[in-house]
Amino acid sequence: MNPGIALAATAHHPGFLSPTGVEITFVLVGLATLGAALLTVTTRQLVHAALWLVVALGGLAVEYLLLTAEFIAWVQVLIYVGSVVVLLLFGLMLTRAPIGRSPDADSGNRWVALGVAGAAAVTLVWVVVDAFRATWINLHGAVQGTSRATGTSLFRHWVLPFEALSVLLLAALVGAIVLSRRDDGGRGSE
């Protein structure tokens, strides 16, 4: 859509005090997602962190759905919840992460980290709210994120990056193999 329509939509947005149902749902799911994310980065049990990450990523998939991007939502569930978190759990197990509470899950500079993150959050939220407080997303009309629309644009306009991405994935595959291969000969000679 051209910006003119968006600006026209902006002109008569309903305001924050009369939320729509979609908005209420979005905010509630968003609060759950944010809470799960905060638990992910603060919990002292490493495996729980991975599980809270699942909740956070799943919440995000719901948010995608609410934003009418259904294909992205399913990809999110498949790839993140289905494979990435599983990989992370494998990593935790392979590095013999302690099960149960580990008191030293946070490093010494957590207060610095808290300060930086807080400052960044205040800045970002202030800027974003200042910029977009009157911006309205029109979710009605043609659905923006159907699988059809996404597939069409992906294979019509984004074919070349898509294929390049497959090469990138291949390189990452090879790199992961090379990195994790146990080089017995090399170690024996050390």
Partner: peptide, 27 residues
């Protein structure tokens, strides 16, 4: 839907991630 909702949620998630990157000990 207000654009501010997803934008603010994204900002807060991002900062949560920053805190995690800076504060967590386990890689």
């Amino acid at each position: 839907m207000h654009l501010a909702y997803p934008a603010v949620l994204a900002a807060l998630l991002f900062c949560t991630g920053i805190y995690g990157v800076l504060a967590r000990r386990n890689a």
